[in-house]
């Protein structure tokens, strides 16, 4: 028995943990931008952590349930309402057949994840239900959800515990100003020492051009490049390189003006130098940044990046222990 979409918000997509293994063919991993939030929402409703849910940006959808279910909303502070009555985020709640889930105005963050017991059971493509609209993969017919869609549900793997809630200290939202840790990369030498300092000293802010493919930042000083004769295959602009692979999280700065951090739906390669890469532990956080959020980039080394990744894994373990072990 499906969930019917009455209204869809502005970019509500089905996402799971993505489709690894095709990036070399230009197909990005995709999946939830804030993976911790989707994993947590799934745990709350008794799903496998990797089950497909809905990623809503800034605005929630209106969903009509045709069977009883358990629902959880994690990530952004987008207050859920059931037949108009408020419900808590980061908390499992019961929904009866015929009830309508809707949302109030966004209070904080950018992306809320809705998990429904059983998970969304649209057909996987290349091993994932994640919506990659540019490539017409996954989701509902390769696109974001629309009013009139019926979302099929799968079977639960565990009984959901209504009222189960994530302890406040394990919920993570962006600070203001947000801090994104960056490991300098292969092309670090292309900018001057002064520019290397400026990039990390300046406070940037999230631009309106910020989506699943990449997040653009504005407001810092223009980066100066070390002069060179452009190599064969590189464009004329000093920010151009001979085409190279773009890692997830890599920070390109076209013409040295506005850094762009590539995210889950990244393009796999191109001809802009990359100053470095946002560490994996901070990628979820980017998905929660609203436009105009002041943001600092913080320079870290590999050891710090790996420690942060372990720390992040421990946070996820603590959430699992809080929700499942008991």
């Amino acid at each position: 028995m499906p969930v019917n979409v009455i209204s869809a918000g502005i970019a509500t997509t089905i996402q799971d943990m993505g489709r690894p293994g095709y990036y070399h063919l230009g197909i990005p991993i995709g999946g939830a931008m804030d993976r911790l939030a989707l994993r947590t929402a799934n745990l709350l409703v008794g799903n496998a952590e990797e089950a497909a849910g809905l990623e809503c940006v800034f605005v929630g959808p209106e969903l009509e349930f045709t069977e009883d279910a358990t629902v959880a909303v994690c990530g952004a502070e987008l207050p859920p309402k059931l037949d108009g009555d408020p419900r808590e985020t980061w908390t499992a709640f019961a929904v009866k057949a015929g009830q309508v889930l809707s949302f109030d105005f966004l209070k904080a963050g950018a992306r809320a994840y809705i998990a429904i017991s059983g998970g969304i059971n649209t057909p996987p493509m290349l091993g994932s239900r994640s919506t990659y609209a540019i490539g017409a993969l996954g989701g509902v017919e390769g696109r974001a959800v629309q009013p009139g869609d019926s979302l099929p549900l799968g079977a639960s793997v565990r009984a959901a515990k209504e009222g189960a809630s994530v302890p406040a200290k394990l919920r993570r939202g962006p600070d203001n100003p947000a801090e994104l840790r960056v490991l300098p990369g292969l092309y670090w030498h292309r900018i001057t020492e002064e520019a290397q300092r400026d990039f990390f000293d300046d406070t940037w802010k999230v631009a309106n051009e910020a989506d699943r493919m990449g997040y653009r930042f504005q407001g810092g000083r223009k980066l100066a490049f070390v002069e060179r004769d452009q190599p064969f295959g590189a464009g004329a602009d000093p920010s151009n390189i001979t085409d190279a692979c773009y890692p997830y999280g890599s920070v390109q700065v076209p013409s040295g003006t506005e850094p762009i951090v590539l995210h889950r739906d990244a393009v796999s390669g191109g001809g802009y130098f990359m100053i470095g890469t946002v560490i994996s532990a901070d990628m979820d956080l980017i998905g929660q940044l609203q436009p105009h959020t002041p943001t600092r980039f913080v320079k870290v080394d590999m050891e710090t990046a790996l420690a942060a990744r372990r720390d992040r894994a421990r946070t996820m373990d603590a959430i699992r222990n809080a929700l499942v072990a008991s």
Partner: peptide, 8 residues
């Protein structure tokens, strides 16, 4: 009248 979304 409120804006449903953040932006410009």
């Amino acid at each position: 009248v409120k804006s449903p979304i953040p932006g410009t």
